[in-house]
Design a protein around this nucleic acid. Structure first.
Length: 585
RNA sequence: GCGCCCGUAGCUCAGUCGGAUAGAGCACCAGAUUCCUAAUCUGGGGGUCACAAGUUCGAAUCUUGUCGGGCGCGCCA
């Protein structure tokens, strides 16, 4: 199934092939890139600027080139009329037959309409969210989740094999701090009151975890035993204090005792995150554990590869990676002087491992605050023999919540709106998913709770869903009247779809595959969002002006075909966005 | 200071390998429903595309500079 634009581009391409002097000049040119939808119906359906692009190399005027090109267009039933316009645009007016054929394609393809055939290369690994398992997801993660899930759907629709992965940072100091935090809350619940570390995790969920985990075999100790000889718990000293608590917990309960608490804590949070995302319609194929990377020695393996290639050196007792060679500001430490590997070391190993697992193209969706890491991680991949471009990074900028025109202060302490779960409960999954991807990912997002929540025409998600529900309702009404839609008759009578509004709606429908491709190629779901809004507007506009159940059979069948096709495209598009397409509202 | 993202209507935003008169929603104003969902539709006003140069047939789009905003610059993760 080819998009309409490709069909037009092919005709242009064929015409050029018959004109040697143009064919040479156009050899490096993607013909399809010269063809675009017109903004104004008075310019026809498609326009090509190819004559202008070729004017310089061919040394002829654009209008002359356009004239010979038009002359060379073969006979076909797709195009009604071709005109030269303005400085040398070629405007194509498509025949109704072309649009009617597209309607049939939509109805035949159904939920596959707009999707590309499955290919087996390149295999894409899409990593997103990957929030540390130290607490519940907040509204910022929600944007990464919605964006990542939608990009995944878009890539799949474009035919790519894509695997969605969540990297669980379940190793390292933050996990120790989590373990110590839970440990202290558990002691507290057992009547042992210890000054809670300023550097610890203070949220209420820590108490919940403390009350749920299995602490069998771990003895309650006294407050003195915990704090004896520890540094002061002050803002200046919070890192030392919390690290000392971790060490103390290991002394008192042994590594096994501490691990038991830490492991259950992180698993509890990870499971909570997973459930939250599942409810949000965001699914992962793999929950990749950082611990597993360390346990299987893959960090050491990756460092060994770098070492063999001469891409590591020692200085000041630490081991460094010369990332300056790959455009970074400075070289980076991979093994600290105390022998502990840095986060960067696992990150290199993790991305190396992704490639080694057979994924050709890696996409990371990261918060905007991580943009400093890209150069060095790419450098790491390159140093290990892969291409820097194998890693693509998409950044998601920050989210600011607004309520009643006021900025909502975020942060756990404010007790205000903070978690993704609260947001979902307030505005609903559909509105949240839609709103999150309605703006380009590299732009800051003002999330207006009042708009997202309003079940009115302020809210584009309901506007689109309403179009879908309206169509369902038409077919129900039809049944109520003991009428039926004769789809075969519709094919034979599509000439009845001839009004301006019908033309506009058919044009909008036929754009869908092109929009999907655009959105997938650019990892830009907002194109789909805006498209669906436009499509719904074209539908509502037409629907409002035409009551057609009472029409003669031939007209009714054709118009119902238009309804059915619109329903298909809206459902498909909303499906990509992870938004439901309700039959009733 | 250096690097990355950005600056388009009163507000929120589209405009993606440079293209024709810069678009949409909200808000505002005026209208439409004995009729398949009015969560709808029709019409209207509203712009120095931050600013200044440059590139060319043509710039919101590319280049440079200035101003303004966000983020990042650890042997943290």
């Amino acid at each position: 199934m080819r998009a309409m634009k490709q069909i037009v581009a092919q005709l242009v391409s064929d015409a050029i092939a018959t004109l040697p002097e143009l064919a040479d000049a156009a050899a490096d040119l993607s013909i399809e890139s010269t063809v675009e939808r017109t903004r104004d119906a008075s310019h026809g359906d498609f326009a090509s600027n190819i004559a202008m692009r070729l004017a310089k190399p061919v040394r002829k005027s654009p209008r002359d080139i356009a004239a010979s090109l038009i002359n060379a267009l073969g006979d076909n039933e797709i195009i009604d009329k071709v005109e030269i316009a303005g400085p040398g645009f070629i405007n194509f007016y498509l025949s109704p037959v072309a649009f009617h054929a597209e309607l049939e394609t939509i109805l035949e393809a159904g939920e596959d309409y707009g999707r590309q055939p499955q290919r087996d290369h390149p295999k894409i690994l899409l990593e997103f969210v990957s929030a540390n398992p130290t607490g519940p997801l907040h509204v910022g993660h929600g944007r990464g989740a919605s964006y990542g899930a939608t990009v995944g759907n878009l890539l799949e629709a474009a035919g790519y094999p894509v695997s969605r992965e969540y990297y669980v940072n379940d190793a390292g100091r933050q996990m120790d701090i989590l373990g110590a935090s839970v440990w202290l809350r558990w002691l507290e619940a057992s009547g042992v009151d210890v000054d809670f570390p300023k550097g610890g995790y203070r949220g209420d969920y820590i108490r919940d975890i403390a009350s749920e985990i299995d602490t069998g075999g771990i003895e309650v100790v006294t407050a003195e035993a915990v704090t004896d000889g520890l540094p002061e718990n002050t803002d200046d000293n919070k890192d030392e204090y919390v690290d000392a608590l971790v060490a103390r917990c290991k002394e008192l309960h042994g590594e096994d005792g501490f691990n038991k608490i830490r492991q259950q804590s992180l698993e509890s949070i990870r499971d909570e995150i997973r459930a939250d995302l599942e409810e949000f319609g965001v699914h992962f194929d793999e929950w990749f554990s950082e611990q597993s990377l360390t346990q299987s020695n893959r960090v050491d393996d990756a460092l060994a590869v770098l070492d063999e290639r001469g891409m590591l050196y020692k200085k000041d007792g630490a081991t460094w990676f010369p990332s300056i060679q790959y455009g970074d500001d400075k070289d980076r430490v991979v093994v600290r002087d105390n022998g502990v590997k840095t986060y960067f070391a696992s990150d290199i190993a993790y991305h190396f491992d992704k490639r080694e697992r057979g994924y050709d193209h890696l996409i990371d969706i990261l918060g905007a605050d991580h943009h400093g890491y890209v150069t060095r991680v790419r450098g790491g991949l390159e140093a290990m023999g892969y291409e820097a471009d194998d890693l693509e990074v998409q950044f998601v900028q920050f989210v600011t919540l607004y309520r009643s025109g006021e900025r909502v202060q975020m942060g756990t302490r404010s007790g205000q709106f903070d978690t993704l779960r609260q947001l979902r409960e307030e505005v609903g999954n559909d509105a949240a998913r839609f709103y999150y991807v309605s703006r380009s990912n590299d732009q800051h997002l003002d999330f207006d709770l009042d708009v997202a929540k309003s079940q009115s025409n302020d809210n584009p998600v309901y506007y689109i869903q309403y179009a879908h529900a309206r169509i369902t309702s038409v077919f129900e009404k039809l049944a109520d009247l003991s009428l039926a839609w004769d789809a075969d008759n519709a094919k034979a009578t599509m000439d009845n779809l001839s009004s301006q509004q019908e033309k506009a709606l058919m044009t909008a429908l036929s754009r869908y595959p092109e929009i999907l491709e655009l959105a997938a190629n650019n990892r830009a779901p907002q194109h789909l969002v805006h498209y669906l809004r436009d499509l719904a507007a074209d539908f509502h506009s037409w629907y409002n002006a035409n009551k057609f159940i009472e029409d003669p059979d031939n007209v009714r069948d054709a118009r119902l075909a238009l309804c059915a096709a619109t329903k298909v495209v809206i459902a498909n598009g909303l499906g990509i966005l992870g938004v439901s397409a309700p039959d009733k509202m």
